[in-house]
């Protein structure tokens, strides 16, 4: 670890991969993609960074402990089904708010999208919890 080529490439690739994962997450409802795949992509992005640098810098880059992200994801995914109950619908009934954004076309905000964001965070949290723990055990 610690090759200059890897470090330089990682610096360039990381923002692209992060953006790409969000892109995959958001388009998932209509095209191949979704929270699960996007979560795996973002995890590999951070894993790449881990190989290029070290555990401490990866943690710093992620900003939050992956275990926290895992719990947050579970919370978001669960809560995305709750408001429906108060509207007299079943748990997890999809609610939709399509918004017309000038220049971008129609954006479909919805509770399934919120749920998918939860999936994204759970996958990211779970993978990085394991990867970082293994890497720390290595050090």
């Amino acid at each position: 670890m610690g090759s200059l080529i890897l470090r330089t490439t990682t610096r360039l690739l990381l923002p692209l991969l992060l953006l790409f994962s969000v892109f995959i997450l958001l388009r998932g409802h209509d095209e191949p993609g979704g929270g699960f795949i996007a979560g795996l992509i973002v995890s590999t992005a951070f894993a790449l960074y881990l190989f290029a640098f070290d555990v401490a810098r990866t943690r710093h880059l992620m900003g939050a402990d992956p275990r926290l992200l895992l719990g947050l994801g579970l919370l978001i995914a669960t809560l995305s089904g709750v408001p429906q109950i108060f509207l007299g619908e079943a748990f997890f009934t999809g609610l939709w708010w399509p918004i017309e954004v000038p220049g971008l076309g129609e954006i479909k905000l919805s509770t399934p999208l919120v749920f998918d964001i939860g999936v994204y965070l759970v996958v990211l949290g779970a993978v990085m919890t394991i990867v970082l723990a293994l890497a720390e055990a290595e050090e």
Partner: peptide, 18 residues
């Protein structure tokens, strides 16, 4: 019903969300 064209994702996050 679910406003999605990707059936796999629709099943995952909507039809079978539970």
């Amino acid at each position: 019903e679910a406003q999605g064209r990707n059936i796999v994702n629709v099943i995952l996050v909507d039809f079978r969300a539970l």
